[in-house]
Design a protein around this nucleic acid. Structure first.
Lengths: 208, 208, 208, 208
DNA sequence: TTCTAAGCGAGACGGTACGTCCGGTCTTTTG
DNA sequence: CAAAAGACCGGACGTACCGTCTCGCTTAGAA
C-alpha cells in the first residue's frame, strides 16, 4: 500500500502487525480528535509504536490518513436487489452509512482539502479511494444492461462521460447531504434522490 | 459578522479597515499556502496588523476562514436567461467558477472537515455560507413557476424536501467534480448535469 | 518627585490623589507579586487609574518602583540611646525591620540589579534612596564626637573615606543577612555586628 | 548541576556541549542586555540551540541565571600570603573583581531580588552560590588558627555565629560597595575594610 | 554459528506556530 | 485640557508538534 520498496533481502523485516495497529490507531484518533488535532506522536503512542516506525512507513499525516480512510470504503458492495433502482438505493445507503462514521467524515474531507494544493496527494486520493469504487458504477450499469433496464451504450466517449457524471452526482450528493447539510441520508432521501437520478438518466438517453 | 458586541461607547473603537485587510489577507494566504499551512501570525503580518488584533475579533483559524470564504459566494446571482435550464446552467457555472478559485477550494473543504467534530463551527458554516445561498434555489423555482415551467408546489413539506434535495445535488455534484474528480465543471459537463437534474425532477413531479 | 513639568497653568490639573494611590498600589503589588511579575497595567487597576495616567507621570516600571521604595526609608531616624553603640544598634535594627518588609526586599534589590546597566537609574537610586540616608552616619558620628566617644576627625579626605566604609559595611551586612543568608537581623546578630564594627573602627583610629 | 536525572539508559543522551554553550550564552547576554532584557529565546539563539533544549534543562530564567552566575564564583580561592590579613585582602579583592564583571552584577542581584518571593529559588541561590563559598571562611580561619593568629574556637555555637557574621560582613560590604555605592572596591578600600574587620574580631574574641 | 543490515523503542534535537500577556502608544468619549 | 477606557503594534512567553537524529537493543536471513 504505502511501501514500494522492492523487498530488501537482508535485515530485520518490518513488523506486519505495526501497520495494522497504526492504521487502526489513526482511525481511532480521527474519531476522537478529528484531523486537525490528530498528531503523529499520539497515533504512535496509541499504536504502541515509536514515532520513527511510523515515519519509516508513511511520509506524513496526509498519506497516513488517506490509507486509513481508504480501507473503510472497501467494504462497499453492490447488492443484487433485482432492479437497478433498488441496487442503487442499496449501495447509496451503504455509502451514506460509511460517510456517517466520524473517522470517514473528518478524514476524507480533510485530505480532499489538503489535496487542493498538493498534486501528489490528490492523485493518491483518487487512486486509493475514488477510482477504486468506480467499479460499483460500472458493475451496476453492466448488470442493468444485462437485465435490459438500460440500453447497451454504443458511444464509448459518451459512456465514459456519463459514468463520471453519475459518480459525481452520487458521491457529491451524499457527501453534501451528510457533511454540509448535516442531515442523515436516510431512506426517504435516498429514494427521492435515486428516482430523480434514474429518471433523469432515462430521459437523457431516450432523447440523446 | 463576527462581532456581537453591542457597541461599547467608551474607548478607542475597532478599526474597520483592519477587518477588511485581515479577510483579504486570509484569502491571499489560502491561495498561496492552503488551509493547513496558513498561520494566523502570517495572516496578521500580511494584513499589517498585530496578532492580538486578529485574536480580538476571531476565536481561531476556522472562524476566520469561514468568514473569509463566505464573502466569496455573495457574488453569486441567478441570471435571467429565459428558461429554467439556462438559468440553472448559468448559476452552476458561476458556482463552479468560484469553487475553482484556490482560496475557495482549500478553505471550504477544510472548514467542512473541521466542522464534523465542532457543532458550533458547523452551524457557522451553514449560516454564513450554505443557508445564505439557498436563496438561489428558491428564487429559481419561483421564477420557473411564474413562467409555467414548473407547476406550483402545493405540499409545503414535500416542497421543502425537494429544495433540500436540489441543493444537495447541485452543490454536491459541482464540489465533487471540482475537488475530488479534479476536473473542471465546464460547459459540457454543466449542460449534461443540468439536463439530467431537470428531467429527473420533471418526471418526479409528473408522477408524484 | 517624578514630574519636571513646570506647572502648566491651563487645563485640568493632575489629580494629587492619583500619585499617592499609584505608589501605594505599587508597594502592594510588590508585596504580592514581586518585581518581575508586577505589571503597570495591574498597578493602574489597583490604583483605580488608567494606564495612561500612570505613564504620564513615570517613564517606566523602574522609576516607579524607585519612588515607591524610597518612601519606605524616610521613616528611619537615629535614636538617642545615650551611647554610640546603642544608637547604632537602634538604627540598624530599624533598617533591618524595613528591609524585612517584602516590598522593600523585592523592590530594592531589583532596581539595584537593573541599575547595573542603566546609569540614569543608578543615579536615581543613589539620589533618592542611598544618599538620602547618609545623613544618619554623619549625624551619628557628630553626636559621638560631641559625647567624646569618637575623636574629632581632622583629615577630611580620610573622614569621607571612613564614612563611606561605614555605610558600605552597615548597609551591606544588613542586606546580606536579610536577603541572601535569609535569616533575620535580630538583636543578637545586631549586637555582635555593632560590637565588631565599633571596636574595629576604634582600633583603626587609635592606630591611624 | 540542574539535572538530578539518574541517567536514563534509553533514548538519545543529552548533549553535554549544549549545557556549556547555554551557560556561556547566558553570561554573554547578561553582559550585553542585563537581566531584565535577557530572553530565553535570545539565549537559545546565541547558544545555537533550540528553545526547547533550554527548557528541557532549566525551569526558567531564574534557575538558568543562578547556574550561569554560580560558575563565576568557583574560581575564587584563598591565596596564601603569609598572614591572615593579607589572605583576606587577597580573597576580597578577587571577590570584588568578580563582582565587578557585568554578568555577575546584573545577574546576582536580580536572582537575589527574585528569590525574596520564591523559597525554592532562594534555596538554590544559597546552595549553588553562597554556601559553596563558605569554604573560604572556614579554610581561612583554620589556617589562621594553625598559624596562631586566631585562638582555637571552643564554643561551636558561637563559632558558627561568628562565621555567619563574617560572611555577611565581607560579602555584604563588597557587594554594597560595588553595586550600590557604585565605586570600585580597590586596594585602598579593601585594606581599610580588612583592617576594621580583623581588629573588630580580635577585640571581640579578646573580650568575649 | 556468527555476522550484519535493518527494524525498533526511546527520547533529545533544531524548528515553527501557537495563543496569551505586557509594554507603550494612540484614539475615542466623558468630565 | 486631563482622565478612563480600551484598541493598537510589537515582542517575549512557555508549550506542543514537527520531522530528524542518535542511542542501545532485537531480529532473522546470509555467510
Amino acid at each position: 500500500m504505502q511501501s514500494r520498496t522492492p523487498a530488501s533481502r537482508t535485515g530485520r523485516p518490518r513488523s506486519a502487525e505495526a501497520d495494522a495497529a497504526i492504521l487502526a490507531a489513526t482511525r481511532q484518533a480521527l474519531v476522537e480528535l478529528g484531523w486537525s488535532k490528530l498528531t503523529l506522536g499520539d497515533v504512535a503512542t496509541r499504536a504502541g509504536v515509536a514515532k520513527t516506525t511510523l515515519y519509516r512507513r508513511w511520509a506524513g499525516k496526509n498519506e497516513l490518513v488517506v490509507d486509513a480512510v481508504a480501507e473503510l470504503f472497501d467494504e462497499l458492495e453492490l447488492p443484487d436487489c433485482g432492479s437497478l433502482a433498488d441496487d442503487i438505493e442499496g449501495v447509496v445507503l451503504q455509502f451514506a452509512a460509511i460517510l456517517d462514521r466520524p473517522e470517514a467524515k473528518s478524514g476524507l474531507m480533510a485530505v480532499v482539502a489538503e489535496s487542493t494544493l498538493d498534486d501528489a496527494l490528490r492523485e493518491r486520493v483518487r487512486t486509493s479511494i475514488v477510482q477504486r469504487q468506480m467499479r460499483l458504477v460500472l458493475e451496476g450499469r453492466e448488470r442493468a444492461q444485462f437485465r435490459g433496464e438500460l440500453p447497451p451504450e454504443p458511444d464509448p466517449e459518451e459512456s465514459a462521460r456519463t459514468v463520471e457524471l453519475i459518480f459525481d452526482m452520487v458521491a457529491g450528493a451524499v457527501v453534501h447531504r451528510t457533511l454540509v447539510s448535516g442531515k442523515q441520508a436516510d431512506e426517504q432521501w435516498v429514494r427521492d434522490f435515486t428516482r430523480v437520478l434514474l429518471q433523469g438518466l432515462a430521459a437523457e438517453s431516450g432523447e440523446g
